[in-house]
Design a protein around this nucleic acid. Sequence first.
RNA 1: GUCAGAGUAGCUCAGCUGGUUAGAGCACAGGAUUCAUAACCCUGAGGUCGGGAGUUCAAGUCUCCCCUCUGACACCA
Length: 514
Amino acid sequence: MSYTLTTPLYYVNDRPHLGSTYTTLACDALARFERLRLQKVTFVTGVDEHGQKIQRTAERQQLSPQDHCDRVSSRYRDLWNQWGISDDRFVRTTNPRHLELVVQFYERVKASGDIVVGKQTGWYCVDCEEYKDDPAEAESPSCSIHRKPLEWRDEENLFFRLSRYQSAIEELVARDDFIAPASRRQEVRNFVAQGLRDFSISRVNVSWGLPVPDHPGHTFYVWFDALLGYLTALLDDGEAVSLDRLASCGWPASVHVIGKDILRFHAVFWPAMCMSAGLPVPQKVFGHGFLTREGQKMGKSLGNVLDPELLLERCGTDAVRWYLLRDIQFGDDGDFQQQRFLDLVNNDLANTIGNLLNRTSSMARKWFDDGVPPAGKASSADHPLAIKAAETVRTVIEAMPQLAFKTAAESILQLAIAANGHLSDTAPWSRMKEPGQEASVAEDLFAVLETTRIVGLLLAPLLPELSGRILAQLGQSLDPNNWSNQLNWGRLSSGSPLPKPTPVMQRLELDEPL
RNA sequence: GUCAGAGUAGCUCAGCUGGUUAGAGCACAGGAUUCAUAACCCUGAGGUCGGGAGUUCAAGUCUCCCCUCUGACACCA
């Protein structure tokens, strides 16, 4: 089975920020999980590079738009590399192949009779670059954001006849598996219920855009172009650009993961465009929440933006991934709190999980010849920890496809806590001092080591680096093609050597605030 | 303004169709322990469940009113 997931194509107006990093990390976890489940995964990310805003930003920096895009795009690509993102496709909308695709798509939509020439008239705010909803008869309306008078505009645009898809879209958004999380579903339904209006897909005075074939002077509106980037990405396998090939290239997407701000484009406009072009619609659109920092919106004006490059450099990928995925319900808004970040990373990763491995491995090595102790009865699937582990595996496997990263992470942590509890209960260190206890101590240590192995395996999609270190410390490694089997209890073999333990996760201490 | 959602321990949140002393994690306090990354384990304190009224034998959970916050209300990537 093939599984296609996408991040948004990030707008290269500015350097990457934590929000896009967050989305991408979440997708990465999901992509890794699906690969381990042996899906044929295509993980798409990339950048959206057209539009007037970019044109202007480039001008301000005295760069050509293309140069500007090249620079920012490579920052994204580099950043994803540094974070260890496992994307399969990184698409750029300035790629010539993308133009080919957009033209093909446009021709299909046009052939469906869904392109009409119309007038875009209304009150326009130059600073916002958008039409306002003020009534046409308004005397002298002004923009509530910029407090400047609105200008009356009257320009020719091409329109997509969205209105024709009213009932089809209504049906689509009424499905309970299309828009997630459920809390955002109603919003979109209400919007659709108000009646869909045609929307413009071309501009006449934006030169930094893709030219519309049969309308000189027109360029495609950025959104029309950007969404199609998903298709371009899927076709980027060395073969020809052809919409006819999409079915064998992973379309429709299993899920588009996006920020809640662009839910409508993905849940309403985009499916209608697909229908018009005779393509299946995406299976799911997941709109996640936004991150604030210490309760405040992150922004340049507040000077409180958290730079992902800095965060990665100072804290490492495991720490940040864990915090974002384990502490924030994916879908809800989340608040980045430095103290909590440190607390969770140190408690969960260093103390609970890391130290569990360290202490258990130390005991095993000390008393059982630097290796895994004899399993005895502990290899049985009805050992309490075996039962708990099986439960955890089930929870993770159920949670991950639903993007419930928090549920998955918490249950893995609970498994480690249970193992620590088991050590406390059985106290191998004191029983080793009594005669004739070796065999039963060995069983307890085996069970805990085995639990740790499963913790390490379950962390693979969420924290690939830490997962690798945990497994290595157990003398194991991830088998990407055999994950499900590896998750079965009792696969650690008694007598196999355990390397000398070193902390797999350092406690995080910050000399200065982030 | 209209619509939707939310206001529960210091913080982040669970609490389904109303039913014994309102839960978890973090933070905090105390204890236990020494295998381990001053880690782990146990216990405890802490809440008039936004405010008010009502329905009911019984309401955090239903109804009404009020207060506060968030989001949507079309082309902002």
